[in-house]
Design a protein around this nucleic acid. Structure first.
Lengths: 243, 243
DNA sequence: GAGTGGTCTAGACCACTCA
DNA sequence: GAGTGGTCTAGACCACTCA
């Protein structure tokens, strides 16, 4: 019978949740697999079923686990279909939400610029990975992106040819680096296009662009990616639901 | 002992949640007041405490109720402090989130224009209340707003002098009309300013503005307000958290 | 029919609030 | 100290899945 680690003053369901979350993040069970049944967990940890259910409820509401009545409780696969649009709010002028193609222009390692260091909560000048990337719809550029990642956790993507992969980075972060994006803060502003962005987007310099700054975080709230996307204001459309 | 109405095939906690939600929406208990204790509800409805807690859990996660250990469970006050920024994502250029002043320019009743009718799910030409409103910071116009409301539920605001009230409409909807805004969908686009907006905002015609279209809904998801806000792109800043 | 999660009970005891 | 919500137990029975 494994003992629950972690602070004894916390409720048992919280401690069980933490223990299960750690097992999952250490890949004790793989995505798509079932975890042990509620009855087995209750017996193993010497808890009542109700307490086990409460711990699992938490992980389900965090979208880490998924229940299927009669079958079991499963590690949630970072589902392409599901997560696809969760972080994608930029639409075509017609309101369509097609995933734009991705073209990675450059990958380099450099000392973190001040703004990136601040966003990622790194010491100034700490090495970061910088991606320059273009998003296209029907071959037309719609977004020019600069992406900064802390080098340590994301080192594994340096060896990959990102243009051989799908158009979304977050599944790659998970597959290659074991880093899961759980939430993000975005701020939108408008500015005149600088020459580099104008060139990439194929628009006149100084014409208005929308700038989307995104800080993406992991399950523990730690900053994992800082991103700046610029798109032509004319073709800009962004949707959000406020609850 | 009141019987639970609603479909017998639903779980008891779901039916109790629905019954409590109905009481709240019918103002059986007022905002800020405590509902009966869990033990009393369990006795009244002849349920176990666990089932009552599960129903209350649902309403808490819907932000309709609020628990305070040792004190009771309270109807969530549409808290000025809390809700103030919940629907307010437009910031000053400096990222400040001051509530802009409100200046209502016109209130009229007219047949719903096609777009407003569609958004509010009303038959074409149904009478609606239209507000034209300017938002200012330090006396400078920052947003020009057009607001459409279904006439029936909002008739009570027609008699009020809205410029004698606070700068936020949602508390007034609640106070005067008993209509509570629970969620909203927003879509942002950019466009050149038409002459009316340019005049209101004090900017050159055809200079770029950001257009925010908002559909606000009640607890049951029914559309309650459709709003179009235009602001100068240069001073535009919008923040959102994605979960 | 064996095994899974889903609902529900009838409590006990604890932490916190407030007069 | 009385009253509140918070945690936890040890089940029973149900609905669903799957061989």
């Amino acid at each position: 019978m494994p003992a629950l680690p972690s602070d004894e003053r916390l409720p048992l369901y919280q401690r069980l949740r933490d223990a299960l979350a750690r097992h999952i993040s250490e890949n004790r069970w793989k995505a798509g697999e079932a975890i042990p049944t509620e009855a087995v967990l209750a017996a193993d940890y010497d808890l009542s079923i109700g307490t086990v259910r409460k711990a699992i409820d938490m992980l389900v509401s965090e979208r880490i686990l998924e229940r299927q009545q009669g079958r079991g409780t499963f590690i949630r696969r970072a589902q392409f279909q599901d997560s696809l649009f969760r972080f994608f709010r930029f639409q075509t002028a017609e309101g369509e939400r097609r995933i734009p193609q991705s073209q990675v222009l450059a990958v380099d390692v450099l000392p973190a610029p001040a703004e990136a260091a601040k966003a990622l909560q790194l010491p100034d000048g700490e090495p970061v990975i910088h991606l320059s990337r273009l998003r296209l719809i029907d071959g037309q550029p719609v977004l020019a992106e600069d992406i900064w990642l802390p080098k340590g956790p994301f080192e594994a993507i340096l060896g990959k040819d990102l243009n051989q992969e799908g158009p979304l980075l977050y599944p790659l972060y998970e597959e290659f680096c074991g880093q899961v994006i759980a939430s993000a803060d975005e701020t939108l502003t408008a500015e005149p296009a600088d020459e580099r962005s104008a060139g990439l987007l194929g628009i006149a310099a100084h014409s208005p662009v929308v700038l989307i700054e995104r800080l993406a975080r992991g399950y523990a709230g730690q900053p994992l990616e800082w991103r700046r996307s610029r798109g032509h204001a004319q073709h800009f459309r962004y949707s959000v639901e406020i609850r």
